[in-house]
C-alpha cells in the first residue's frame, strides 16, 4: 500500500507541474467562468433555469472534452516518460511493479478528476453566493458520480494503450482512433447500421450501451428527462431492459468496470514486457 501511495504522490507532483495539466485545469475552470459570464445561470431553456441548467451544459461540454483530453495527455506523458528514460531511473528503485503502476493510476486519476469536480463545486458555491434560489445537490452528486466513472474509464483505456504502445506517436494515434470510434458510434455509425445494413435494433442498442460515452450521455440525460423522451424510440428498449434505477446503476458501474478491466490488462502487459 505504501508503494501505491508513494507512486501516486510522485505522479501527482509530476503531473501538476506539466503543461498539459495547466491547460486541462484552465479549460474546465474557464468553462465554468464562461458559463457564468454568458449568464447561463439566468437563462431559461426547456424549463431549466439557474444552476441546474449550467450544470447540464457543463456536463455536456465535459463529455466532449474530458475523454480526448484524458486519453491524449495520459498516453503522451506515460509513453513519453518511458521514451525519455524516466522509467529506467525510477524503476531502478525498490518499488513493486504493482505499486508503481496502480500508484500512478490513482495519482493520475486524482489529477484528472479533481479539476473537473472542483470546477463544478466552485460553480455551485459561487452560484450560492450569487443568490441562486435552489442548489441542485442531487444533480451535482449524480453528475459527480458519472464524471468519476467516465474519468476512470478513459484513464483505464489510456493505461491500456500506454502499456501496448512503445512510442508516443503510436500511442497518441491509437488514443485518437479509439476516441473517434467511440464518438462515431454515438449516433452516426449506429444510424448507418440500422438503415444501411438492417441490423436488428437490439444489436444497435446493445452496441450503443457498450460505448461508455453513450452510457454517460444517456445517464446524464436521464437525470433531467427520466422517460428519455429526447432519445427517441431506443428509450423504450433501455427502460424496458434496465428500468430507471437499473440504468443509472449501469451508467455508473459499466464505465468503472470497463476502465478497471482495461487498466488491469494494461498492468498484465506492463509487468510482462520491457519496462523502459
Amino acid at each position: 500500500m505504501s508503494a501505491v501511495l508513494q507512486a501516486a504522490r510522485l505522479d501527482i507532483v509530476e503531473s501538476v507541474r506539466a503543461r498539459w495539466f495547466a491547460i486541462y485545469a484552465l479549460v474546465f475552470g474557464g468553462l465554468i467562468a464562461i458559463l457564468f459570464i454568458f449568464g447561463l445561470t439566468e437563462s431559461r431553456v426547456m424549463g431549466f433555469t439557474g444552476l441546474s441548467r449550467m450544470l447540464l451544459t457543463y456536463i455536456q461540454l465535459t463529455m466532449a472534452i474530458l475523454p480526448i483530453f484524458v486519453l491524449l495527455s495520459t498516453v503522451r506523458s506515460l509513453v513519453g516518460d518511458r521514451e525519455a528514460g524516466v522509467y529506467e531511473y525510477m524503476l531502478s528503485f525498490p518499488i513493486s511493479l504493482s505499486g508503481w503502476f496502480w500508484g500512478r493510476f490513482v495519482g493520475r486519476f486524482l489529477v484528472v478528476f479533481l479539476p473537473v469536480f472542483a470546477a463544478m463545486l466552485i460553480a455551485l458555491v459561487v452560484g450560492l453566493f450569487m443568490g441562486a434560489e435552489e442548489v441542485p445537490w442531487r444533480d451535482f452528486l449524480w453528475y459527480s458520480a458519472l464524471l468519476f466513472s467516465l474519468s476512470l474509464c478513459f484513464l483505464g483505456i489510456s493505461f491500456f494503450i500506454s502499456a501496448l504502445a512503445r512510442t508516443s506517436d503510436i500511442a497518441q494515434s491509437l488514443a485518437f482512433v479509439i476516441w473517434l470510434a467511440l464518438l462515431l458510434f454515438l449516433d452516426l455509425m449506429l444510424i448507418g447500421l440500422l438503415i444501411q445494413f438492417q441490423t436488428p435494433a437490439e444489436v444497435v442498442v446493445g452496441l450503443a450501451l457498450a460505448n461508455p460515452l453513450e452510457v454517460f450521455r444517456i445517464g446524464a440525460m436521464m437525470l433531467f428527462d427520466p422517460q428519455l423522451i429526447l432519445l427517441g424510440p431506443a428509450a423504450y428498449m433501455i427502460l424496458d431492459w434496465f428500468g430507471n434505477a437499473g440504468f443509472m446503476t449501469y451508467a455508473l458501474l459499466y464505465p468503472l468496470a470497463l476502465g478497471l478491466v482495461l487498466a488491469g490488462i494494461g498492468f498484465w502487459v506492463f509487468r510482462r514486457t520491457d519496462l523502459p
Binding site: L10, E14, R17, A18, G85, V86, Y89, P94
Partner: peptide
Amino acid sequence: RVLGKIAFVPQMPPPLRM
C-alpha cells in the same frame, strides 16, 4: 529485495519535473 541492495546512476538524467 534485489533493488534494495542496488544504487544506480543512469547515463542520461531523466527529465523529471518534480
